[in-house]
């Protein structure tokens, strides 16, 4: 029968073993995998301005990006392809708040530079490799 000491060893040994593997994979993901998949070398001031605005305005509080966020407004990972830059500009320039089908977006008073920053951010996001996400709708093929 398992003793308390053996149970403790199982807990401590198992935790240490899997932590080492996790740290190893994390280092690889952070130094090789993510930079390659997200074209990190292309990040520039304009994209970073968009990223900053994304955070500052808590866009994730309604939308999802890379599938992460809230589920009140559309997924935006591939919005650059799906809707195009002009549509994005129109939405962002609607000072009273975009309101499709009665669901209201907060109205923002972005400058032109900020709008372009967000468009550049969505274009960068559009080109990331996310292992097939979001999926192509199978019935619409």
């Amino acid at each position: 029968m398992l003793s308390k000491k053996q149970a403790k060893l199982f807990f401590l040994g198992g935790t240490a073993f899997f932590m080492v593997i996790f740290f190893g994979l994390s280092i690889h993901s952070l130094t090789v995998g993510i930079p390659e998949n997200t074209n990190a070398d292309q990040l520039n001031e304009e994209i970073l301005l968009g990223r900053k605005l994304w955070d500052q305005n808590n866009c994730m509080g309604c939308h999802t990006l890379m599938g992460e966020g809230a589920y009140y407004a559309p997924e935006l990972t591939r919005v650059y392809d799906r809707k195009g830059p002009d549509y994005i500009r129109t939405v962002l320039n609607t000072k009273t708040g975009w309101g499709p089908r009665g669901r209201m977006m907060v109205g923002y008073d972005f400058t032109q530079e900020e709008v372009e920053g967000l468009v550049a951010f969505f274009e960068w996001m559009n080109n990331t490799d996310l292992n097939g996400f979001p999926p192509e709708p199978s019935l619409s093929k």
């Binding site: 994979l25 993901s29 090789v32 998949n37 997200t38 599938g67 996310l130 097939g132 996400f133």
Partner: peptide, 10 residues
Amino acid sequence: YYYTGGPSYW
């Protein structure tokens, strides 16, 4: 990490 930019081994 499946669909957030991580490598495919995840």
